[in-house]
Design a protein around this nucleic acid. Structure first.
Length: 317
DNA sequence: AACACGTGGAT
DNA sequence: TATCCAAGTGT
């Protein structure tokens, strides 16, 4: 089944798509996985250098899985949401354990990987393996919301109605469907942007329900503003930066220096430990997580009863 | 289902 | 300067 939006968007994409490294024919499925993790809530421009460095160091899932999760967190640098680094490491480990070191092709198997949700599973299946899936990210949802539903912004969470619409739009063949998925996403990223959509030059401007209706302002519930200054997130970020930048375990004093409010500081550190991003080594000494692998290959750790700090170091599942 | 979760560029 | 927002996921 063909749709009036297909040709203009596919033609626009073939003429205007960006040359991104994870889209080149020689990009491995693993490279696509790495790109998708990094691109979650993070702009392309910031991902580019991190992506290249990451794949240079860990060209395969097995290479990453063989290293400590803490090294993944360190390599993640300032990309933000460092739990993604831990989950990517966990996904690589799962690929080694369950999929012969390969990126699984089945959508259900992808979805079972840590850090892979509805969007990312569909994106990997579509972009890396050329399968036919609806790929609903924030860009696609915005384009559909405007062009089809005539609203400036989509609902907060993906709705069954959005999935139905996306399914209706999905071209019949896998090859065209996978191109369509990246094409409509690219349109949202470059033209149908959130703030100042470039309707002049939009290939579907003549068909866009929102534009045709006079671009009515958003009327839904207030969209969540992200405060940051003064939050636990900021404190966590500072604490983790200290750990990242130190080759050695750090002691309490170094961590205490990043935030003056002790209760919030302690809560943030506890949170990092609970999330598996930080590992208590001994009383008042912390490091990035070594994971189960390093025990046998590097400096052995004592496991007597001298540690008093309560901690549950479990790689997030 | 509402929230927590980082970071920095753009407006 | 303050706010918005960028290829979401897990709980």
């Amino acid at each position: 089944m063909s749709h009036a939006l297909h040709e203009p968007i596919l033609d626009w994409y073939s003429a205007n798509n960006r040359d991104l490294p994870w889209r080149t024919p020689d990009a491995s499925a693993w490279a696509v996985v790495v790109s998708e993790f990094m691109l979650q809530q993070t702009p392309v421009a910031r991902v580019l250098p991190a992506y290249t460095a990451w794949l240079e160091r860990w060209p395969t899932p097995a290479a990453l899985a063989a290293d400590e999760p803490g090294e993944a967190v360190r390599m993640w640098g300032r990309l933000g949401y460092p739990r993604r680094a831990l989950r990517l490491h966990g996904a690589a480990t799962a690929m080694v354990d369950r999929h012969d070191g390969e990126v699984p092709r089945e959508h259900a198997d992808l979805l079972a990987l840590p850090g892979v949700g509805e969007y990312t599973a569909a994106a990997i299946a579509s972009f890396a393996f050329g399968q036919r899936h609806i790929v609903l990210d924030t860009n696609v949802r915005r384009v559909i919301g405007r062009a089809i539903d005539g609203v400036e912004y989509p609902p907060q969470a993906t709705t069954p109605a959005e999935r139905r619409t996306a399914t209706t739009l999905l071209p019949a063949t896998a090859e065209t469907a996978s191109t369509w998925a990246v094409a409509i996403m690219e349109l949202g990223a470059l033209v149908c942007t959130a703030k100042s959509p470039k309707c002049v030059g939009c290939p579907i401007a003549a068909l866009c329900a929102w534009r045709l209706a006079g671009k009515p302002a958003y009327t839904g519930p207030p969209r969540r503003g992200q405060t940051y200054a003064g939050t636990d997130r900021q404190v966590r970020g500072r604490l983790l930066a200290v750990l990242r930048d130190s080759a050695e375990p750090v002691d309490q004093a170094a961590l205490d220096a990043v935030w003056d409010e002790p209760v919030q500081r302690a809560r943030a550190l506890d949170g990092l430990v609970a999330d598996g991003l930080v590992e208590p080594l001994a009383a008042g000494v912390y490091r990035l997580p070594a994971g189960p692998l390093s025990d046998s290959t590097s400096s052995p750790r004592r496991s007597d009863s001298s540690e008093s700090a309560s901690n549950s170091v479990s790689p997030s599942r």
